[in-house]
Amino acid sequence: MTAQPQVSRASVERTHYRPRAIWTGTLAYILHRITGVFLVLYLFMHIIVIGQSVRGEQAFNDALHFVQSPVFVLLDAGLSGIVTFHALNGLRIIAFDIGWGIRLQKALFWASLLVAVAVFAVSLVVARKLLG
């Protein structure tokens, strides 16, 4: 037998995320994960803010007004884009599990992304209007 291989995957582990190795499906996978992690972090923040209700109406309103400042409202526009993408791409994944659209996976991904970007743009307009 040949010598026992000494280099395992050390030299190749990063290969799947090189720009040229990222295809449509890979991009969908990466974006779904990143948006997912982001949403979990947001979830905790959201629950902590809303949870100020345990300390009464005043504390709740104070916390709420803090996250209703312009910076946060503009960030919310980004959030709606992210939520939309994660939801639509999630539906895309569930569709594959039912057996729908497996061969349309690329079109379905780009459609999800397009709608998400549109939602982001509309949210941005609404946010700017609210902020005056």
Binding site: I47, I50, G51, Q52, S53, G56
Partner: peptide, 16 residues
């Protein structure tokens, strides 16, 4: 823990 805190927050709304 998160779920418990969330439920407590929701109950608080009903209480106040």
């Amino acid at each position: 823990a998160t779920w418990g805190f969330g439920i407590a927050a929701l109950i608080a709304f009903r209480k106040y």
